[in-house]
Design a protein around this nucleic acid. Structure first.
Lengths: 146, 146
DNA sequence: TTTTTAGTTGACAAACAGATGAATAAGTGT
DNA sequence: ACACTTATTCATCTGTTTGTCAACTAAAAA
């Protein structure tokens, strides 16, 4: 359905969005919490940073935060960086001549809903409940001036 | 969405089903008509034959035909031979702890429709209009006792 | 200035999907 | 018996995705 990489990307940016920008998030923490291989995640985050969806800060007390308001980042924008979403919109059987068959019609209805889900949802909806999750566990990081 | 192999399999068995069992279909013809690499198709057909969805007859005037009535073969039965359809039914983001979020709820609705499409459609619906397509072009095969 | 932290980058390996070619086995018709 | 046709099987190749390792760069702190 979604590629593994796209799923990782959504989980990662969803996790960052859930912090409500109150502090920077370490790649290491995202990796552990979201069960994403550390170095593979680094590359995903870098791509997201290139596109401006997140910002990266290097060095001590560095980390990642959103590059724009969460409500302005749709799932579709993230997914299409890491995979081709065109197949969702085209013929179920990869045949362009079967416009009229019942299967294709049903698929059209479904694919419209999928695109609506991807384009109509934003990254703050991914983890609506975990914004305070890591705050206490990471008291050791409280030194940083947030 | 569907793997390329699953799409090939649906096109192939759809083509065979469209012949209404009036005559055997050559792998070569399926390959050409359905734009599927010949040798790759052979392996797909072999798997379908193993599972009893089609029958293969070797030698001169051989070919393939359905192994059971078209209306008893659902798209889901074919697809699941060539790919894992579980992801359609599980969480959008591969996380089992987000039962309540709005995205997951919407995805549940969509995935139910996908499964309904796959399980509720049969292979005779794939190409409802081409049953006589190759009959005339293949008059040279008319020798066979059909 | 040195050390530590943390993101960046490139090389690479494993696994898989998709595709290809050639040899083989099993039937049919002469 | 023989030639021919057609499916079967095996070995291999390619490209992509996913994942790993390690060296590198930048920034802050000591």
């Amino acid at each position: 359905m979604l590629s593994q990489t796209a799923i990782y990307a959504l989980r990662a940016i969803g996790y960052i969005a859930a912090q409500k920008n109150t502090h920077l998030v370490l790649a290491k923490v995202i990796s552990e919490e979201m069960k994403i291989p550390k170095n593979f995640l680094s590359k995903i985050l870098h791509k997201l940073a290139q596109k401006g969806f997140i910002e990266s800060i290097r060095g001590t007390n560095g980390g990642f935060r959103l590059g724009k308001p969460a409500k302005e980042i749709s799932l579709a924008q993230i997914v299409e960086i890491f995979m081709n979403i065109a197949p969702f919109q085209s013929c179920f059987l990869g045949i362009h001549s079967c416009q009229s068959c019942g299967i294709t019609k049903k698929w059209d209805t479904i694919s419209k809903q999928i695109m609506e889900l991807l384009e109509g949802s934003t990254v703050d909806q991914i983890f609506p409940d975990i914004e305070t999750k890591k705050k206490n566990a990471k008291q050791s990081n409280k030194k940083c001036k947030e």
